[in-house]
Design a protein around this nucleic acid. Sequence first.
DNA 1: GATGAATGAGCGTTCATTCAT
DNA 2: AATGAATGAACGCTCATTCAT
Lengths: 210, 210, 210, 210
Amino acid sequence: MLRPLTDEQIDRLIEEATGAFAAKGFAGASINSIAKGAGVSVGVIYKYYKDKRALFTACLEKSLAYLDEVFSMTKEKNGTLMEMVSDLIKQNQEAARLHPEYFKLYHQITVSGDEPGMENIAEMIEGRSATLYAGLLEKAKEEGRVRSDMDTQLFAFFFDNLMMMLHFAYTSRYYEDRFRIYCGEDKAADDDLVHDEMMKFIGGAFGAGQ
Amino acid sequence: MLRPLTDEQIDRLIEEATGAFAAKGFAGASINSIAKGAGVSVGVIYKYYKDKRALFTACLEKSLAYLDEVFSMTKEKNGTLMEMVSDLIKQNQEAARLHPEYFKLYHQITVSGDEPGMENIAEMIEGRSATLYAGLLEKAKEEGRVRSDMDTQLFAFFFDNLMMMLHFAYTSRYYEDRFRIYCGEDKAADDDLVHDEMMKFIGGAFGAGQ
Amino acid sequence: MLRPLTDEQIDRLIEEATGAFAAKGFAGASINSIAKGAGVSVGVIYKYYKDKRALFTACLEKSLAYLDEVFSMTKEKNGTLMEMVSDLIKQNQEAARLHPEYFKLYHQITVSGDEPGMENIAEMIEGRSATLYAGLLEKAKEEGRVRSDMDTQLFAFFFDNLMMMLHFAYTSRYYEDRFRIYCGEDKAADDDLVHDEMMKFIGGAFGAGQ
Amino acid sequence: MLRPLTDEQIDRLIEEATGAFAAKGFAGASINSIAKGAGVSVGVIYKYYKDKRALFTACLEKSLAYLDEVFSMTKEKNGTLMEMVSDLIKQNQEAARLHPEYFKLYHQITVSGDEPGMENIAEMIEGRSATLYAGLLEKAKEEGRVRSDMDTQLFAFFFDNLMMMLHFAYTSRYYEDRFRIYCGEDKAADDDLVHDEMMKFIGGAFGAGQ
DNA sequence: GATGAATGAGCGTTCATTCAT
DNA sequence: AATGAATGAACGCTCATTCAT
């Protein structure tokens, strides 16, 4: 038989597709040009994926698996709250510089409307970190290490918002520009500075000095 | 009709197009159905706007003008830093509930890639608030009303990130879901609670108690 | 606006489509090559017809209307049974030579399986002639002008079978060949001879000599 | 398997393909699903048959061989003209109920246009019966057992037309419907009645009472 | 010599854009 | 100067055919 797609070819297809979906969105990306870009035939895509949506989902799953891995690395260190925050910032910076397209794809789904199959996607993606952050804050609050008057759920939410915006700042053309407008080229490129200032910001927000 | 489009017609066109782009994204929206919805002919759209992208840009500009107006209302009050923060939160909450489509459109451009005409759009949108926030923080720092060790530009950036995520949380399907996952239905719907907690978060971050 | 399709263009489109469907069947015919052949754009077909099936239906309707017209011309003459038979033969010969594609299209639907929208098509097409033929035979039987032991419905059916095969013999490549195999080139081309022999055959079958 | 296709496999392939072509037509049937249904690989089909058309032709040939067999059974009985007619009717009824797909396939080729390889197919199929019928009629005419003024070739043609329409009436969806429209459900299902009436019809046509 | 996954032309259909009116 | 039907490139997808194994 014609040589089956190698793992490399599949990887390249997913990579190409991820890039296309990340850059142009689901509707804007074209299967035919993804195939061309990946160096495979159109037809074979439909052997591996039922339709365009399934290809998109496969790309998304790979991206989310990566994001989850990054998140898990921090989680497993089991450090203190602020150690975790520091870690998360660093990991996000590093991961976003390494694989911007994964974050871009994540970014894409945040703009998609009510497409079928997208109903519980937020729960899937956000559930774990929501629970983790709120739990850590709750524990820290009980132990008196953060301000006692916070709503831990909302504070977890605000904190995660900062994390999301951080990786988008390394990832989306618009957010990159915006980053530079706020800080100038130099600071935006200085990962350590950003980390340190963010630690101050979040530390202060949490009242983590107590 | 063989007379120029009236201002009302242009308004209605932009409104219709904004709704369509907000709901379905750039690629998903159809010029023909926008024309039908707006009660104008397809052809005339191309007299006023070079192409679909130009129409999108026009919608975007109107949305941004609205957002700017909201922002200006706060700016002109000339209150203290934390008064301004409080105001901004409230304004964003109100505006996002009133005109979600404007925020959705704003959200759309953050995912668009390197399309022509999108080069300086961030500068256009973000320049003024970047300057304002950093300026206010700088002044407050000099006066000792916020922590003295902050990088005011980065802090302004972090703060604006929180503002952006706030309006997206009222505006994008995905972010709405995510909001509820973090806080539950009740808190996500309680604008006053969100405002108050956000004030604590930001107040702490700024060291605004000093 | 771009010049709307003239009636001539629509006619040409239907003609081209009828030819394509007649020659290759519904599945085998291609909208794109019909468009090319008719000298119109693909897109405009979809302005006039919802989809391929609708175009086919339009062709079929035109063909059936023509067939019906031919049939009506005979019916309205209100002649005796054998006069009607004679007329029908002549009309079918003439019509089939004039517009073979209409008969071909009719022929096509006889091979189509259980496609949607084809459920009651036989009733639509065959109902009128079935009633007419059986009625005429019944009347003739009562009047003793045909054999008294016939089942008029079945005899009407056999008679119509001969009519169908007659026009297919002028219309379908296969049936034309078969016609020549049975009779030789010369007789197959001799419409009057065919008419006369067919009159004998049917006259005998009906016992119309009585 | 890396051994030649067994005869059983070829048979099964042809059977599957015949079913598919009969049900969906040439264009509608899919080689890939025929292969799957027959339990052979796609590739091997192309070793045995040049292309889809050749596979169709092979199916057709098998169908025609069967039809020919049915025809031969009658022929070999060497009965009188009207005995042969009676036999033919019965054989057609029985065969059509037993193997509708063979007749359907035969029906398919009558609608196909000028495809290559279809040039002499009518000759192949119709030649023998044309000769036989005309011969029998000629002999009967000489012996005075049928009307003396008939053109035996055309009468043979008309007679065979009735035979064709008879098996299509048991075989094609459209012709089945039409049969019922002409006769009602009950008569269409009553093979003996149909046989008897057809004998009357043909007997009368031939003037076989003489 | 069979396999069956890959190929890619071509399908039906859409829709941004054009242009005769 | 607006109209809106026509245009045709390009879409997602299928399937007859090929060819490395």
